[in-house]
């Protein structure tokens, strides 16, 4: 912890875990898509599912997928704003298994494409992205993050890392499908990637899909302990 963590942050109430964390999870989805989806389905686990209306978790998640900031007063009116922007949404209670009580599964649609993101709000506004399109991970959202679907062939990782012009903080690498020789590479970076670097990575022959998720920035990296 630090003085800044204790003295703030500025946020929309009522709860850092059920409101602020939810907002940041939604915003990760917005950054991942690079836009507001045209349809969003939220599946809320345990505490999230049981108390979401009394904590404004639903409004916060929607505000997040529309890209709203932590202290945006419009979070309160997110349901109406989503309707007026043509964003179709639904909320469901669902048992998501052995995960943190404050976990949500988001299905975000952009035309025919959809992305499935699982995330937990672990207290004090801190979040963890725990699954992206079926692949487990553990992202804080605090770092700029590169998410790549690449060919599962020797040398692929080298080619990717060679093009990255920022310092790598964390690296996740998992095989998605052995038969199709596809792997998912997630790279958390200490600073933003240059546009040139990103374009070079996207044009690599081993890259099948590439997503660049900018940092949620106001999520403190060192914040610990769950605040109400």
């Amino acid at each position: 912890m630090s003085l800044v963590n204790v003295g703030g942050p500025v946020m929309i109430g009522p709860s850092s875990s059920h409101t602020l964390g939810a907002l940041r999870i939604g915003r990760f989805g917005n950054y991942f898509l690079g836009k507001t989806p045209d349809k969003a389905e939220f599946f809320l686990h345990q505490s999230f599912g049981q108390t979401y209306m009394g904590h404004g978790t639903d409004r916060a998640l929607l505000a997040g997928v529309m890209g709203f900031g932590d202290a945006d007063r419009a979070v309160k009116d997110a349901l109406g704003i989503a309707l007026s922007r043509g964003l179709v949404y639904s909320f469901h209670q669902e048992d998501l298994g052995e995960v943190h009580p404050n976990t949500v599964k988001m299905l975000l649609y952009d035309g025919a494409d959809s992305q499935e993101i699982w995330a937990s709000s672990i207290g004090a506004g801190m979040i963890r992205i725990i699954k992206i399109n079926g692949v487990e991970c553990d992202l804080s959202g605090a770092y700029p993050t590169l998410i790549l679907v690449n060919k599962d062939i020797p040398g692929a990782l080298n080619m990717i890392l060679e093009k990255i012009d920022a310092n790598v903080a964390n690296l996740y690498l998992r095989r998605i499908n052995k038969l199709l020789a596809k792997a998912l590479t997630i790279v958390e970076l200490d600073s933003d990637l240059s546009l040139r670097s990103l374009l070079e990575i996207k044009s690599l022959p081993v890259i099948l899909e590439a997503y660049y998720v900018k940092s949620l920035s106001d999520v403190a990296q060192d914040r610990v302990g769950g605040l109400l």
Partner: peptide, 15 residues
């Protein structure tokens, strides 16, 4: 204000 989704400073927490 916090309970009605107003803007607050979580110093030290929202609650």
């Amino acid at each position: 204000s916090n309970a009605s989704m107003g803007r607050v400073v979580a110093c030290p927490t929202a609650g």
